[in-house]
Design a protein around this nucleic acid. Structure first.
Lengths: 262, 262
DNA sequence: TAGTGGTCTAGACCACATC
DNA sequence: ATGTGGTCTAGACCACTAA
C-alpha cells in the first residue's frame, strides 16, 4: 500500500498520458480513480471491516504519495457509491448494514398508513440442495455447487405481507441455520456481514405482477389467484460478484413498493 | 446575477459563520451551495433553456466573484442531480429529455428478451375535467382547477403492454391535443419541455399488483382479473413542484420493471 | 486542544472539441 | 491555436468531535 502511483501507472512522461491503448481502451485512469481502486481492493481483502475507520486523508495522502485533495476525491467517490461513510470531525468509516439510520436499505415496501413499524420475521425452512438452473445461472454457479434455500415470511401487525425465497451459495455461508438467524437482532444483511464477512453492495430487481398459486396463497392467507408483486433480486458484493438470489412475493393491498426516479 | 455572495450572505465576519439560527436552522450554507441555488433559480426562470450552454466556469466565477473551483463544485453537484450535463471540451449544458442517449429515462419497463425496440404509442382519449380528489391532492390543486386526463396505450410488437392514465394541470398545458402529441416525434416529456416549458426533474412511484377490471382487460387484450403492475407516478419539475400524476398498468408476462438498489 | 473532514483559493497542466 | 471541462497540487481556514 505504499507504491508511488505516478511512475508505474502513468508511464513515461514523454508519452502523452491521454493516449488510448491498442484496443481502444483508456491506457490509464486518473490518479484518484487508481486510489479508489486500491482502497476498494483493501475493503475486498478485509484490510478494514464494516464499521472500521480508515486512515485519515493526510495519512493516506502520505502513503500514496499524492496530495490530500486527490485522496479526498477518491474517498468522496467511494462515499457516493455507499462503500464508505464520512463524518466530519470523526473520520471515514467502512459502511455497514448494521447502522441504525439505514436499517432496511434494500427493502422498498412501505405501508399505506405510516408509521413504518418494524415487521416481524418468521423463518419457514432452510435446506441445502442443488440450485435450480435459473438460480445457478443468476449466481454464476455450476449445477453441482450446493446452495441454501431459505423461505421466510414478513408480517405487519400479525398479517403476512411478504413471502421470500432466498438462495445462497452454501460455501460462503457455511454454518447458517434458522436458530442463528432467529437469534440475530439486526437485518439479514447485517448478519451476513457480521457473521460471514459477506457485504452486500448493490442489487438489481425485476418486478412483475403474478397470481398467487395454491401454496403461496396458503402461506400468505390469501385467496388463490390473488395478485402479488413478484420481486426477483440479485445481490452483489464487492467487484459485482453475485452472492444472493431471492424472490419475494409482496401482498400490496396495504403496502406499496416505493421507487424514486431521477 | 452579479452579486458578491460573501458580504451579504455570509454576514459580519466577526460572527462565527457556523453559528446556527434561532430556530436551530443553519444560518448559512457553503458558497458553492449558494451558487447552486442561484443557478437553479436561473434554470427555473428560464435564463437558460434545455439544451442551452451555460457560461463557462471562468465566466461564472468572475460573475459571482468566487474562485473557479467553487463554481465547479456547484456545477458538479447540479450535474449529479441531472439538472446539467457537462461535456469536456464543449461546455456545460442544461439537461433535456430530448437527448438520444437517455430517451426513456423514467420508463423502467424492459422486455424479457432484448433487443429493446421502441414501443408504439396509441392515444385513446384526452379530456378536460375536474380532477378526482386523489389526483387534486397529489398535484396540490383545488378541486375547481381543471385538468387534462389522457389515456394511452404502449404496444410492443403490436401487443398492448401498458395502459396509462395521465393527469395534467390544464393551466400549464394549454393547447394540448391528441394531434399535437401524435405528430411529436420524441417522448412525452420531450414534448412537455419543448412545447410547454415544463421540464420533469424527478418522480416518485408507488407500485402494486392488481387484478385487471373489465375495461382494463379489454384495452389490454387480457382476461378479466389478469395480474397487472400498477405504477402510480407523481412527477415534479423544478423546486419539487408536482405537475403530472399518472397511473400505469403494465402487463408483465413478457416484460419486467427494472430497478437498481444501492 | 488536537485531530478529523469540509470549504475555498490560486495556479499549473492535461484532455477534448472546434476552428 | 483557442477555449472548454478534468485533474492535481499546496496551503489556508472553518466546523465538528472528543479528550
Amino acid at each position: 500500500m505504499t507504491a508511488d502511483l505516478r511512475d508505474p501507472v502513468r508511464g513515461d512522461p514523454t508519452l502523452p498520458t491521454g493516449t488510448h491503448g491498442a484496443a481502444g481502451v483508456p491506457a490509464f485512469s486518473p490518479l484518484y480513480l487508481q486510489i479508489k481502486t486500491l482502497l476498494t481492493q483493501g475493503l475486498t481483502q478485509g484490510d478494514w471491516k464494516p464499521g472500521d475507520a480508515l486512515p485519515s486523508e493526510t495519512e493516506l495522502a502520505a502513503r500514496f504519495k499524492v496530495s490530500q485533495g486527490t485522496v479526498r476525491k477518491a474517498l468522496d467517490a467511494m462515499a457516493l457509491d455507499r462503500l464508505l461513510v464520512r463524518r466530519q470531525g470523526k473520520g471515514t468509516f467502512v459502511a455497514t448494514h448494521a447502522e441504525q439510520q439505514v436499517q432496511y436499505r434494500f427493502l422498498r415496501l412501505m405501508p399505506d398508513t405510516p408509521p413504518r413499524v418494524a415487521m416481524q420475521r418468521r423463518f419457514l425452512d432452510l435446506k441445502r440442495q442443488r440450485p435450480p438452473v435459473e438460480v445457478a445461472r443468476a449466481l454464476g454457479l455450476g449445477g453441482a455447487q450446493i446452495v441454501f434455500r431459505l423461505r421466510r415470511l414478513l408480517l405487519a401487525l400479525g398479517e403476512p405481507v411478504v413471502l421470500d425465497e432466498i438462495w445462497l451459495p452454501a460455501g460462503l455461508f457455511e454454518g447458517l441455520s434458522v436458530e442463528r438467524m432467529s437469534s440475530y437482532a439486526g437485518t439479514m444483511y447485517g448478519l451476513f456481514e457480521a457473521e460471514f464477512g459477506v457485504r452486500m453492495i448493490r442489487a438489481e430487481e425485476k418486478i412483475r405482477a403474478v397470481a398467487a398459486d395454491e401454496a403461496q396463497a396458503r402461506l400468505l392467507s390469501l385467496p388463490l389467484g390473488a395478485p402479488l408483486l413478484s420481486v426477483e433480486r440479485l445481490s452483489m458484493t464487492y467487484a459485482d460478484q453475485p452472492v444472493e438470489f431471492r424472490r419475494g412475493l409482496y401482498h400490496t393491498a396495504a403496502h406499496y413498493y416505493r421507487n424514486e426516479l431521477s
